[in-house]
Computed example of a mutant assay.
Amino acid sequence: MRHFISAESLRKMVEQGKKVTIDKNCVLTPAAQDLVKELGLTVIYGEPQAQQAERQVTGVSPVPPSGVAIHPDAPQELKQKVRQILREILKPACLHPQVVHVRGEQVVIQPFAAAPPGQKIGLTDAVTAREGNLCAGFMTFDHAELPWLLHYDEADYIIEGEFTLKVGEQRFEAKAGDIIYIPKGSQVVFSSPTFCKVFYVTYPANWADLGSQ
């Protein structure tokens, strides 16, 4: 398993000189790579045993896959809690992803239960966390609009009709064949002045279980 070396961890490693030896299975984060160039460092990729010796000399703890360094003097209880949180955050939405073939003509788009009163909006998930780590499905807007806060990343492919997206002061008008990407945390308004059908992909699939993380 590869581990990431953060810029902070790398800085601690090189306090004694311009050379640093790291485990051959470790990877420098982009910030750590910039630090190498900034300080003119020489990075030597050694065997795991050499890396363990380096950690003993410098007091640098192993870096978890998330790139978060845990201080060697931190209480054991705190270390365990941090590792538990990281495992929970990095846990995949689906433990056993599988290939899924969804036949479009068999998908029945249902009324969207969370739609504002009077708004004709349909939505059906075709791929969920039961099958994969991302979610995919179809939604329709019939002269309707939907204010929404995204707790996930989303990509929309417009199948037919006119699709409008408002993000703050920005307004995007898309037509059939267009793709729109929306980053997590965006406050948006989906709408269509006529009728539109959209294929969407969201990540992670289990965003609802994660709340606003």
Rank of each mutant, 00 (worst) to 15 (best):
E38N: 00
N133L: 06
L95P: 13
I44V: 15
Q84C: 04
D34A: 09
D178G: 02
Q170V: 04
Q80S: 14
I70R: 12
E145M: 09
L41N: 04
G122Q: 04
R55S: 06
L95E: 15
P116N: 08
Q51W: 05
T124S: 09
G40S: 05
L28E: 03
K24D: 11
V201H: 01
K166M: 07
L123W: 05
H71D: 15
L210A: 03
Q110T: 15
Q106G: 09
T202V: 13
L86S: 14
E88D: 12
A113P: 12
L41E: 05
P183K: 07
C196M: 02
I121G: 04
L41Q: 05
A53N: 13
V189A: 01
P117M: 02
P204K: 05
A32I: 01
L210W: 09
A155L: 08
I85V: 13
Y200I: 03
Q187R: 15
I180Q: 06
M13R: 11
T42N: 09
R11W: 14
W207A: 10
W148K: 04
P48M: 00
A93G: 15
Q56C: 05
A74G: 02
L39V: 06
V27W: 10
Q106M: 01
T202P: 00
K18A: 10
Y200P: 01
Q49F: 07
A155S: 11
P117C: 05
V20L: 02
L90G: 15
P75E: 09
E54I: 10
D23N: 10
Q98Y: 11
E15Y: 08
R11N: 14
